[in-house]
Design a protein around this nucleic acid. Sequence first.
DNA 1: ACCTGAACACCGTTCAAGT
DNA 2: ACCTGAACACCGTTCAAGT
Lengths: 194, 194
Amino acid sequence: MTTRHSRDDVVATALDLLDEHGLADLTMRRLAAALDVQASALYWHVPNKQSLLALVADRILERARPVEHDLDWPERVRAESGALRDALLAYRDGAEVVSSTIALGLGASAAWVRLLEATATSDATVDERELAASVLLEFIVGHVFREQQQSHADALGAAAPDRALDRDPDGGRVFSFGVDLIVDGFRARVGARA
Amino acid sequence: MTTRHSRDDVVATALDLLDEHGLADLTMRRLAAALDVQASALYWHVPNKQSLLALVADRILERARPVEHDLDWPERVRAESGALRDALLAYRDGAEVVSSTIALGLGASAAWVRLLEATATSDATVDERELAASVLLEFIVGHVFREQQQSHADALGAAAPDRALDRDPDGGRVFSFGVDLIVDGFRARVGARA
DNA sequence: ACCTGAACACCGTTCAAGT
DNA sequence: ACCTGAACACCGTTCAAGT
């Protein structure tokens, strides 16, 4: 009679909690409380916290808006990169969650494939395109991680005196400059062959 | 009579512990034990764990080997990037520690300045050079973070099935490809003006 | 199939008090 | 100047047992 839960409930509630209170407050015990359940009950749905976070990360990246396929490749790379950034920004600490699971082979392959496909119409080799997809994904996640950390630190009113990277108040200049450099570098490399 | 400690002792021991057992095992209580002291004693030397980690991060980056200043700027950027990567790789979980403190305005300004200076002889504006330094630093830290996470995961014998980014067994191809793309993109942008 | 209750082995941090 | 001892308010995870 009482509300019993599915794994999807658990992940969805975790996502809510993440967005409302941040990763530091997303504990198994708080999640259990939000579901009106004992903490131990979660371990029926999920083997451990790390797997839970991987499912949350997948959910975050899944929500990245689709991008038109009939753009030329530089435009498409820029659009995919922007879509991924927006997806990470859509949830509090989204980049940190994704970043902490990305290397474990648990998530992010879909995002990587999108970036790989984006260069399909370039003259690059598959090897070059794979490398470029990795570079882009690492830059995007690394950048948004930093963006979100910074706004978190600012929210605490830390008033840091000597912030090396705090030259990006609008939060997007470094990002688009970075994507542009990578795209231009890729074009230079490929164009040198044509 | 008994060994009393300085803040430098505490940071140095934290660095040792980090390298031997990783960030997850670098707890205040374990650090205290390594210093033969109660955990509460650490709070005389340091206001909290986060500040401790920031000091550790600074220590890691300080050890980056110096690079010749009379290279042309693309070579110098590559050399500085490599030196930073090596510094992060020199300690277990080095990139994670640096990454977690970089946005708090606590560390990494020295590293950023090194990357900024590296483009001094290019024809770029200061604004462009600052943006490029940020892009490089974010890529470097993000990349090494992923590298170290991956070797950690591999050490656990996780045998992940579908690892999107696991195309970099030698651990350096994605890195140098990324730095090259950024450098080439920067050159294209600057060269278009000359 | 899904959950409780109790326990285990931990955390970071504070604070009065000691030397 | 540097540290102890005790406490507070937490963690993730396991496991027998319940329904």
